[in-house]
């Protein structure tokens, strides 16, 4: 019994990571209807940036966030202004294919720079520390920290979207980009800020990914898929839905892995397909939009 409790608890905590993957993806789709196929590869890019920063500065990976987050946010803004804004329009094909091409470029660029070897960040003792909740049930400090941060990120995004000028601008541009210009909003700049924010979240997710698991240049697409599954399971237009979707995905994967290690990812896919078949609007997806 406690073994299962343990499995579920681990799954919930991993779900926080998936929720962060999902939140960045969902934010971009919400603001500019862009599905960023390179999202997973950008997460892996953030992991490599963290690797370089920790190597160069000798920082603890968690502290490296101070550098990685602004670096990735800048990458996001420049990427949007320099490339992605040009692909946006009525037709869904250009943004899709441009981000797909970007994904291939990122994967192979990382391969070129860092080889195909698996890497991992050491968090100096933090990665083995744990809190014992009951007999047979103990949770790692790092996963707990990561989950808390995920909740914080999503709460922060929610606050930003509904209580700040920038959030108001995001919603206005999403509703009606043409009329938004009449309010003095420069859509290209607003989109740039949205992508910067998305990649700031990606940076946090990437650092935790790097500390918790091995990564290599080819691991991006799977992160994209997990984030995407969390978005759909949780419900397209709901920020808190991404957290619910991430947690559910994490738990289902953990249970699948407990039954047979080969079923971990497959179980998540099956859960995703089941949600799609039975409740395509997602668990928290309501009537809005």
């Amino acid at each position: 019994m406690t073994a299962w409790l343990n499995t579920i608890a681990q799954g919930v905590l991993v779900g926080g990571l998936y929720a962060m993957f999902a939140a960045g993806l969902s934010l971009i789709f919400g603001v500019m209807k862009l599905v960023n196929i390179a999202h997973g590869d950008l997460i892996v890019l953030a992991a490599y940036v963290a690797l370089m920063v920790t190597d160069a500065l000798g920082l603890n990976p968690i502290l490296s966030l101070i550098v990685v987050v602004p670096v990735m946010a800048t990458v996001g803004y420049l990427l949007q202004r320099g490339l992605l804004n040009r692909a946006l329009g009525e037709d869904i094909l250009p943004p899709l294919l441009v981000t797909f091409g970007l994904s291939v470029i990122l994967q192979n660029g990382l391969l070129q720079l860092f080889s195909a070897d698996s890497r991992r960040l050491q968090a100096g003792g933090l990665d083995v520390a744990s809190v014992k909740l009951a007999e047979g049930l103990s949770l790692g400090v790092l996963p707990l920290l990561q989950f808390a941060l995920a909740v914080l990120v999503i709460a922060g995004l929610h606050w930003l979207f509904y209580h700040t000028r920038l959030g108001r601008a995001f919603r206005a541009v999403s509703d009606d980009p043409r009329v938004a210009q009449l309010m003095g909003l420069d859509n290209r700049h607003v989109f740039g800020l949205a992508m910067a924010l998305s990649l700031a979240i990606v940076a946090v997710a990437g650092v935790f990914l790097a500390v918790r698991t091995n990564f290599d240049p080819a691991t991006g697409p799977a992160r994209l898929i997990f984030g995407f599954e969390a978005v759909i399971i949780g419900g397209l237009s709901s920020l808190w839905g991404t957290l619910v979707g991430g947690i559910l995905l994490g738990v289902v994967q953990a249970i699948g892995a407990e039954i047979d290690p080969g079923w971990q990812v497959l179980a998540g896919h099956v859960a995703f397909l089941a949600v799609l078949a039975i409740r395509p609007q997602g668990l928290l997806g309501g009537a809005r939009r």
Binding site: R168, A172, V179, L185
Partner: peptide, 26 residues
Amino acid sequence: IALVPEGRRLFPSLNVEENLLIGGQI
């Protein structure tokens, strides 16, 4: 120069006050 567009074109995901505030955000 400010335009009141044909068909009003309010932002549906903004409430009344937010619609007004965004008009003044410059």
